[in-house]
Every structure is written in C-alpha cells, then in structure tokens.
Design a protein around this nucleic acid. Structure first.
Length: 159
DNA sequence: GCCAACGTTGGC
DNA sequence: GCCAACGTTGGC
C-alpha cells in the first residue's frame, strides 16, 4: 500500500476552476492534459479515495481553492489521441498510450488560501510545491501538511 | 514583463 | 552519453 494518501493538483482557473467543478453535473472531472512524466507517474500511484488539494496556478491569485477525491484510477488520457486537441501527442498509440489521468470528484470548495499564507505557515516549510523552482503540476502532500492546510482553510486570516 | 528553474531536444 | 540551446512553468 502506498504511503501517500494526499496530493496537490494544479489547475489554471482560466482552463478549469474550482467553480467549474462546483457547477459540473456530476461534480467530477477527468484530470486530462498532464504532459510531464513525473506528474503522470504520481497519478498512476493514486488510489480511489485519495484526497487532493485543488490549487489555482498561473493566475492573479494562486492558492488552494478546494478539496477533491480521486474517484477513478488512472486510465489513458483521451486527448492524446485527438489531433484537434492542444494535448494531442502524435507518438502515442491506443496500444501504447503515453499519458494517463485519474478522475476526481468535488469534496468541497474551501475558503481560498493564498500562496503567501501557505508560505507563512511553518508547518508547510517543506511542502514540495512550495520549494524553490518546483513546477510539477501534481505533487505529494504529507499527512502533517494536509492537517496544516485544513487549519488554514478553516480559519479566517489573522490581522 | 521578468526571470529562475527545470524538462526536452538534437548535434556530436 | 554529453551538454548547449531552447521552450515552458509559474510566482512576482
């Protein structure tokens, strides 16, 4: 059994935001479009029931916007086969897919936690996504970091 | 717009 | 296999 049960998954809100997931019926989405091998490998490690922080990236207000739950194990990302898709990969074949994605379902939209507030929390000092130079769109989160984030989402900003 | 950091590509 | 060049990510 893998040790990691918690993850952080980045989405650009212009592409797909927490509000898009809230509005979806059902409140679930395929996490397609990941084109980095490390991030792909993390998705292939995920189990149904794993939890993930829904993070808004590459936007005016980066930070944590919600919590999701893995609802389907990794399966081939359909967009790699679609020549009309931005995510098309000419080298991928149905027999030998290169890119995979899980499905996630909404657990809840949280109070927004800006990246500055994450950086200010000593409990998150070693969080992978906050490390200098880290660009991975999917990263593991420790149980302690998960709890610290839950505290931040539950509490209003201090003066 | 800037820039640091990292991944990928391709010549050799 | 090395490594320089280039492209991308993503916070600021």
């Amino acid at each position: 059994m893998p040790a990691t049960r918690f993850w952080l998954m980045k989405s650009e809100p212009d592409e797909f935001s927490i509000d898009d997931l809230v509005a979806a019926r059902p409140q679930t989405t395929a996490w397609f479009g990941v084109r980095n091998y490390q991030a792909r490998n993390f998705m292939r490690e995920m189990q149904v029931g794993d939890r993930a922080l829904f993070y808004h990236s590459s936007c005016p207000a980066p930070g944590i916007a919600g919590v999701v739950r893995v609802s389907r194990l990794a399966y081939p990302d359909a967009t790699q086969f679609d020549p009309a898709s931005d995510y098309y990969d000419a080298q991928a074949t149905r027999e030998s897919p290169r890119w995979w994605n899980v499905d996630v379902e909404l657990v809840r939209k949280t109070r927004f936690v800006p990246i500055a507030q994450m950086r200010a929390d000593p409990a998150l000092a070693n969080m992978v996504t906050l490390r200098r130079g880290n660009r991975l769109s999917i990263t593991p989160v420790t149980a302690a970091e998960w709890k610290a984030v839950e505290r931040l989402t539950a509490q209003p900003l201090r003066p």
